[in-house]
Design a protein around this nucleic acid. Structure first.
Lengths: 204, 204
DNA sequence: ACGTAAGTTGACCGAATGGTCATTTTGGAG
DNA sequence: CTCCAAAATGACCATTCGGTCAACTTACGT
C-alpha cells in the first residue's frame, strides 16, 4: 500500500516539525521543517494537505504525551502530589517547547483529532482533580477544566523574564496551587467552564 | 516648527494604530493602519521610523493608562479593594484590547520609552501591593513585580473559551487573588523577580 | 530485469509584508 | 500673492510565505 521510504519520510517530517515548532513556535516556515527533515518542500504537502494539518498532528502528539503522564499519575497514591506533578509536567513541557503553549490554547480545536486529544487530557485532568478534591487538598469549586486552562499559566506569567530566570515559572505554579487550596477559598464570581463551553468556543 | 496637518495626521495615526492593534493584535499591517487613519502608507514611516517604533508608542500609551488608574487607586482607603480594582482594570484592558496582552509581555522592553512606562507601572504596583501586605490581606512573600506579571494571567487563562464565556477571566482573577491571601500561603520554591531580572531579560 | 504506480523534487505562483523614494501637494511665513 | 520647505503620496522593491504541479526518480510486485 505505502512504500517504505514514504513512511520513513513521514516520520522524519514529524520529528523535524516537532523540533522546529518547539524551538521557534508556530511561525516556522514549511521550508525550514522540510530542510531539517532533509526533504523538499513539496514532500511536506505530499504527506500533509496543509500547514495546519501538520501542526495539528504535532499538537495531538504533545497533548497525548501529557495525557499519558496524567494517566500514569492516576496510579499514584497521594492525590495532592499527583496533581502537583501533573501540573508541573504540563509547565515543563511548555518551557522546553514553544509551540506547546499554543497547543493548549489551540485555535485549531476545530480539528476533530485535536479535539479528541484535548478531551482525553480533560478527562484525566478531571479525574486527578476529583481525587484531590475528595481528599480535601483542593477546594470544592475547582474542576478539571480549570486545571487544563491553568496548565499554561505559570509559563505564560513568567515568560517575560524567562531569559533571566528560567525557573521562575515554578514560583507562579505554586502560587496558583495555593489558590486552589480550600483554606483560602472565597466564592468565585463566575462558574466553572463546561464541556458545552469548549464545544461552542471551538465551533464559533 | 511642525505643520498643523502633520500634527493632526500623527494623532490620527496613533488613534488608528491603537484601534487596529486592539482589534487584531500585533499582526495588523501598516497598510491597514494607514487606511484607517485616512493617509497613505508612506506617511506612517514619515512619523515613525519603523513599525516597531509605532507599536512601542502605543504600548507606552496603554501602560501609562493603567499606571494612571493605579495611581488614582492609591487614594483609595481600602488596600485590598484597591489592589483588586487595579488587577481588574488590568485584565479588563486586555479583554478589550488584543495588543495590550502583548504590551505587558512586551519583547520591545529594550526600547527606553517602553522601559520607562513599564517602570512607572511597576512602581505603582509595588506601592499598591505594599499597602495590601501591610494590612495583612496579601501574603508577605508577594511583591509588586509579581502583581505586574500576574496582570495578564486571567485573560490568558480564559482566552481559549473567550468566545463562549466572555467573563470567564473573572473566575481566574479571583482564583489567583485567593492564592495571594496569607491564609493559604506555603513557601514558594523560587524567589520573587527583581529589578535586575527585568533589566537582564530586556537586554539579553 | 523490467514496468509502473507511488513518491519526490524544486521551479514557480500569487498574495502579503515592511520599508523606500522620486514626485507632487500644501501649509504658512514674509 | 509668492514661494519653498515640510509633508503626503503611492508606485515600487525585496523578501517571505503557503501552496501547486509537471517532470523526474525510485521502490517493489511480477
Amino acid at each position: 500500500m505505502s512504500r517504505a521510504d514514504a513512511a520513513r519520510n513521514r516520520s522524519l517530517l514529524i520529528e523535524a516539525a516537532s523540533a522546529e515548532l518547539s524551538e521557534h513556535g508556530l511561525d516556522v516556515s514549511i521550508s525550514r521543517i522540510a530542510a531539517r527533515a532533509g526533504v523538499a518542500k513539496g514532500t511536506v504537502f505530499n504527506h500533509f494537505s496543509s500547514k495546519e494539518e501538520l501542526v495539528s498532528t504535532i499538537f495531538c502528539e504533545q497533548l497525548g504525551a501529557l495525557a499519558v503522564i496524567g494517566e500514569t499519575l492516576l496510579e499514584h497514591t497521594d492525590p495532592r502530589s499527583a496533581l502537583l506533578r501533573f501540573m508541573t509536567a504540563g509547565a515543563e513541557l511548555q518551557v522546553n517547547d514553544r509551540s506547546f503553549c499554543e497547543a493548549v490554547t489551540a485555535t485549531s480545536r476545530a480539528d476533530p483529532a485535536v479535539r479528541a486529544a484535548s478531551d482525553r487530557l480533560a478527562r484525566v485532568a478531571e479525574e486527578l482533580t476529583a481525587r484531590a478534591r475528595q481528599v480535601g487538598v483542593v477546594r470544592a469549586d475547582v474542576t478539571g477544566h480549570d486545571i487544563v486552562l491553568l496548565l499554561s499559566a505559570p509559563t505564560w506569567i513568567a515568560a517575560p523574564l524567562a531569559a533571566a530566570r528560567s525557573d521562575l515559572w515554578r514560583r507562579y505554579l505554586h502560587l496558583i496551587l495555593d489558590g486552589l487550596r480550600p483554606e483560602a477559598a472565597h466564592e468565585l464570581p463566575v462558574g466553572a467552564p463546561t464541556n458545552e463551553d469548549f464545544v461552542t468556543a471551538a465551533t464559533r
